[in-house]
Amino acid sequence: MALLLFDLVLCALLLLLAGAAMLSRSLTQAVTLFIAFGVMMALAWARLKAPDLALAEAAIGAGLTGALCFTALVRYAKQPAYPQPALWRPLTFIGLVTALLLASLSQIPLQPSSAIPALVQQHLPQSGVSHPVTAVLLNFRAWDTLLELLVLLLALLGARQAPGDLPRYRGWSLSISWSRLLSPLLLLVSGYLLWRGAAAPGGAFQAGALLASGLVILRLNQQLSWLSWRHFWVRMLVLGGLLAFVLAGAVSLLLQDLGAVWLSWPQSIAGAVILIVESFATLAIAVTLTLLVVGEPKPEVADA
């Protein structure tokens, strides 16, 4: 009964926050409301017993997207003569995306089929991990995850086409020392999430998002100045997730017999392959998200 009340309040709050975020006149207010919406959405996923999604939503939906929106707002305010696009272009874009989403909605079965979970459970021992979600994401449907990494890379490459320099905030001793204090903790937790993904909710996306939030905090406080696209190894890290994935696919094709399917891991080394792929994917996701949020800062003066 109490939980039903909680759920009802949560649903009402979600709708209210979503509506308020869209209808709000001030952009700052809209962003703040959107962050609150992300936190509530994470709670909703937790109530739906999907801790994987709750973790990802809290880290990406509330944390990183919020930071992204706020940094965008700061840039926007800096450019008063920002070129206003003709109205029909964004409207066509929104209409197209909405139509596509609605079209894909019809493909989701109304009733969750019971055959698929049973199938996953049946093949779980051969997957190399013991958590069904990780088994699906990185073994049975690894192709989807590979494409997700590609989407993330494309997003970064697209964002890099837009010039954007963040007005530099020189940092302040309290926030700098807090970011330094916080970063080992975030590193620890994201490493734990990555490792735990084999047996429990967690995995590359959650770990990467958490790591990215730590990197963004440090980056916004004018630290880690090497973390920019100009640096060769940073570019390699961004590509690393995809490269590791494709290389693992190629190697396991070579190791298996002729009839083997693309991106199916040999059973004996499946666990190790998944761990390697996930580690590189975590780093790639973290660095990509950080570069997306913080953008390319101007060459820095030695300061603070």
Partner: peptide, 16 residues
């Protein structure tokens, strides 16, 4: 502890 510390820091930042 973490919420308290981050609350203190963000409060100072907002005020500043």
């Amino acid at each position: 502890l973490i919420v308290m510390a981050s609350g203190a820091v963000s409060c100072q930042l907002l005020a500043r």
